[in-house]
Computed example of a mutant assay.
Amino acid sequence: MDWRPTRTVRTMVTFDPEGLTPAQCDGDACVACHKKWPRPRARIGRLPNGAALFACPECAAALTPEPVGNVYPLPFRVAFS
């Protein structure tokens, strides 16, 4: 599970490993653009076996879904002040 600062679980997308390179499956390359350096840090999904998949910040912004409707997360400092 991926715990956010608000202690809620973010829905993790499960990816099909077919078509991914071994470096992408190991988390050493971005799942979208194959960039290996700097190593991708944004966790965007997982494989069916539970291994995490990562993307570079540019690709992660394009791959993550928008919030549903008018529900937006509060910044940490507002939620816990």
Score class of each variant (00 low, 15 high):
M1Y: 03
M1P: 05
M1F: 08
D2V: 12
D2T: 10
W3V: 05
R4L: 09
T11Y: 09
M12Q: 08
M12D: 08
T14L: 05
F15L: 06
D16M: 02
D16G: 14
P17T: 02
P17E: 04
E18N: 11
P22K: 02
P22L: 02
A23F: 01
Q24A: 00
C25T: 05
C25H: 09
C25E: 07
C25K: 07
D26G: 10
D26H: 05
G27S: 06
A29M: 03
A29N: 04
C30F: 00
A32D: 03
C33F: 10
H34S: 03
R41M: 13
A42L: 03
I44G: 01
I44A: 01
R46S: 07
R46E: 12
L47V: 03
L47R: 06
P48G: 07
P48Y: 09
P48I: 06
N49E: 12
A52R: 04
A52L: 11
F54W: 06
F54R: 00
C56Y: 05
P57A: 11
P57R: 09
E58C: 14
E58M: 09
C59D: 06
C59Q: 05
C59H: 02
C59G: 08
A60I: 10
A60L: 04
A60C: 11
A61C: 15
A62P: 08
T64D: 12
E66K: 15
P67K: 06
G69Y: 11
N70F: 12
N70V: 11
N70I: 13
V71S: 12
V71A: 15
Y72N: 14
L74G: 15
R77E: 14
A79V: 15
A79I: 12
F80C: 13
